[in-house]
């Protein structure tokens, strides 16, 4: 099965800057995690997003678009990135999700209903 992992981060939290001495270690954790997904045959795709402050939302009502500055829901946690993975069942997907090198985050695990293949 395929699962999408939505990474929710507290919007108030500062991201580690590349100039920070801790940045190298932080990135190494994520590189190792990505490699684990690739080696295990789980990797489909994934990305880290710019903070929600950079989001623009198109709201369409009766075919009329309004452009809004901001994400589609104002919440304390915002989508910070995602992984799309292959896992044999929910237990494996949950185990992979909880192996992420976060200290604080919410990770929503959702099965993919349909994904067109190229």
């Amino acid at each position: 099965m395929e699962y999408m992992l939505f990474l929710g981060e507290a919007e108030a939290r500062e991201r580690i800057a590349p100039t920070d001495p801790a940045f190298g270690e932080y990135m190494a954790g994520w590189m190792a995690y990505n490699q684990k997904l690739i080696d295990g045959g789980h990797w489909i795709s994934g990305a880290q997003l710019q903070p929600a402050g950079t989001a623009t939302t198109i709201k369409r009502v009766d075919s009329v678009d309004t452009i809004i500055d901001g994400p589609f829901a104002e919440t304390k946690e915002q989508l910070g990135g995602y992984y799309l993975i292959e896992a044999k069942d929910l237990d494996e997907a949950l185990a992979l999700a909880s192996a992420m090198p976060f200290t604080d985050a919410s990770i929503e695990v959702r099965p993919v209903a349909y994904r067109p293949q190229p």
Binding site: Y3, K88, D89, L90, D91, A93, R110, P111
Partner: peptide, 10 residues
């Protein structure tokens, strides 16, 4: 069924 919760011993 849809989320793939398995019948397994973890």
């Amino acid at each position: 069924r849809d989320a793939g919760i398995p019948l397994s011993i973890p």
